[in-house]
Design a protein around this nucleic acid. Structure first.
Lengths: 260, 260
DNA sequence: ATAATTAATTAGTCGTACATATTGACATTG
DNA sequence: CAATGTCAATATGTACGACTAATTAATTAT
C-alpha cells in the first residue's frame, strides 16, 4: 500500500498542471513535471528512436524554465536509459532495448495512454512465470507470522468481495504478501511493479469488473499455509491463467497474437 | 555484446580516476564519477538507510565541483530510488525496498565490492526461474533464423571451450540468443542484466574456471531447435542448476542459507 | 497541552559566463 | 583519389552568484 500509493502519486499526479498553461501566475513547471513531460513523449513514440530532441535552449524557451531544470531532467532520463547526451550533437533517443522497462515511472508513462497490447502481453508473460514461482518459494520460506498474514488476507478477500475498491486493494495485498514471503528483494520489486501496473491498465482500459476467483485464492492460501510447494505453484498458476484469460477475452486477438 | 560492453564501461570504467586525487591538474571529477561515487557508498551501506547525506554545499567543497554537478548527480540517484531530497532536511537514503535493484548501475555497484551472499542468491533465484521459462518460450516463438543462430552459437561454444575468455563470451551470447528469441523485451532486459552481472560476480568472487557443461548446452540447443517446449525448459533448468551448485560448493552455507 | 506563528536552513530555480568535447567541412598528404 | 589531419562551428558541460520557496523546529499564544 505504501509503495503503491506513493508510486502512483509520485508518477501520475505531481504533474502540477502540466497541460493547463492558462494559470495566471506563469506557474513554472518544475523538475518532476519536465521529466514526465519529455519522458512520456519518448516512451509513447512522439520522439522516435534515434531522433535528436530539441536542444536545451529550445526547451528552456518552450517550457519557460531555467536551463538547470532542463539539464537535470535530461540527466534523469539518461539515467533511465531513454536518452544519451553528447556535446555538439545534442540529446538522442536510445533504442528501446536500453530503456529500463521496469522503472515505475516508465511503466506508468507507457500504460498511461494508448498502451500497446504487445507490451501488455510481455507483462502478463512475466507475471505468469514470476508469481507461481514466487508462490512456491513462499511455501518453502515463509515464516509462521507471514503464513498467518496470508491466511488472514485470503479471508479479508472474501469479506471484501462485494466492495469493488476494497476487493482490488485486498487482492493486491494478498499477492504482495506472498511475494514478500519469498524473502527475495528482487522478486518483491518485480512482482509489485507488475501487479500494480497490470491492475491499473485493466481498470483504465476496460472499466472495472473482473472475476473474483475467491475459491482459487483460498486454494492458493491453503497450499502455501500447508507448505505444499508444488501445489502452491500450481494453484497460483491456475489463478493467474484465469486472470490472463479475463484480459484476453476483453482485449481480443490484439492481445493474444500481438504483431510481434 | 553491445549492451554488455557498454554497460560495463559505462559503469565500472568511466570513473575517470575517482580514487586518484593525486593528479596534478585538479582534474575535477564530473557527473558520472560523482554519481558512481555517491551511489556506491549508498548501496554498500556506507550511508545507512534513513541517514541524511552531506548537504550539497558540503559535497561541493569535498569533491571540488560545482553545485550543478552535485545536484544533477543527486537527481539521478533519486531517479534510481536511492535517495529523496527535501528542502531544509536534505537528502535522505531511502529504504532499500525502493531501490531499483535491476538498474545496471546499481547492480554493478553492489557486486563490485564486498558483495553480499544474500544478494547473490537472490540473483540466482531469479535466474533459475527466468531462464528455463524463457527457454521454453523460445522453443515456441523463435524464428527459423533465430534457431539457426542458437545452433551456431552452441557449436561455437564447443570450439571455444579451451579459451577461457572466448568461452565466457560465447556462453553469454548463447544465453542471450535464447532470451531474445522469446520476443519479450522485458525478459531480454532482465535476463541480460542478470547474466552479465552474475558472470562478473562469479569471476570476481570464485575465480574463473568451472565445468564447461558442453553436453548440457548442446542438449538445450537441440531441444529448442526441435521446438520441444517442455524438454527445453528442463534442459535449461538442469544447466542452471549445475551452475548454481558450482557457486554453492565454493561459497558454502553463506550462499545456500543466507541469514534471511 | 495544543495549536498557531515565526525564524532558520537547505533544496529549488535562474541567469550568465566560460570551458570542453564532438562534429562535419575543409585542406593536406601519401 | 582515398586516407588523414586540421580547424571552426556548436551544443553540452561546468562554475559561480543571487534569489525563491518549502520544510523544519523552536517559540509563542491560545
Amino acid at each position: 500500500m505504501f509503495y503503491g500509493r506513493d508510486a502512483l502519486s509520485r508518477i501520475t499526479g505531481n504533474g502540477a498542471q502540466v497541460g493547463t498553461e492558462t494559470s495566471l501566475t506563469p506557474t513554472r513547471l518544475h523538475h518532476a513535471a519536465v521529466v514526465a513531460l519529455i519522458g512520456r513523449d519518448i516512451v509513447n513514440g512522439k520522439y522516435a528512436v534515434g531522433e535528436i530532441l530539441p536542444f536545451e535552449e529550445e526547451f528552456v524557451e518552450k517550457l519557460d524554465v531555467g536551463r538547470g531544470v532542463i539539464r537535470e531532467a535530461l540527466r534523469v532520463l539518461a539515467a533511465k536509459g531513454l536518452v544519451e547526451t553528447r556535446p555538439k550533437r545534442g540529446t538522442q533517443v536510445l533504442p528501446s532495448s536500453m530503456w529500463q522497462l521496469l522503472d515505475p515511472e516508465i511503466l506508468f508513462w507507457r500504460i498511461g495512454q494508448n498502451f500497446d497490447p504487445k507490451f501488455l502481453r510481455d507483462l502478463t508473460d512475466l507475471r505468469s512465470i514470476i508469481e507461481p514461482a514466487a508462490c512456491a518459494l513462499a511455501a518453502e520460506r515463509a515464516s509462521d507470522p507471514e503464513l498467518q498474514l496470508i491466511a488472514a488476507l485470503a479471508r479479508e478477500l472474501n469479506y471484501a468481495k462485494d466492495d469493488e475498491f476494497a476487493f482490488i486493494e485486498a487482492d493486491l495485498q494478498f499477492h504482495r504478501a506472498i511475494i514478500q514471503s519469498t524473502h527475495n528483494d528482487i522478486f518483491v520489486q518485480i512482482g509489485v511493479a507488475i501487479e500494480s501496473v497490470l491492475r491499473l491498465s485493466v481498470e483504465v482500459t476496460v472499466g472495472i469488473g473482473h472475476g473474483r476467483r475467491i475459491a482459487e485464492h483460498e486454494k492458493v492460501a491453503k497450499a502455501v499455509c500447508d507448505r505444499q510447494v508444488s501445489k502452491s505453484r500450481i494453484a497460483m498458476a491456475e489463478l493467474i491463467e484465469l486472470n490472463v484469460l479475463d484480459i484476453a477475452s476483453i482485449l481480443g486477438p490484439a492481445f493474444s497474437n500481438p504483431k510481434n
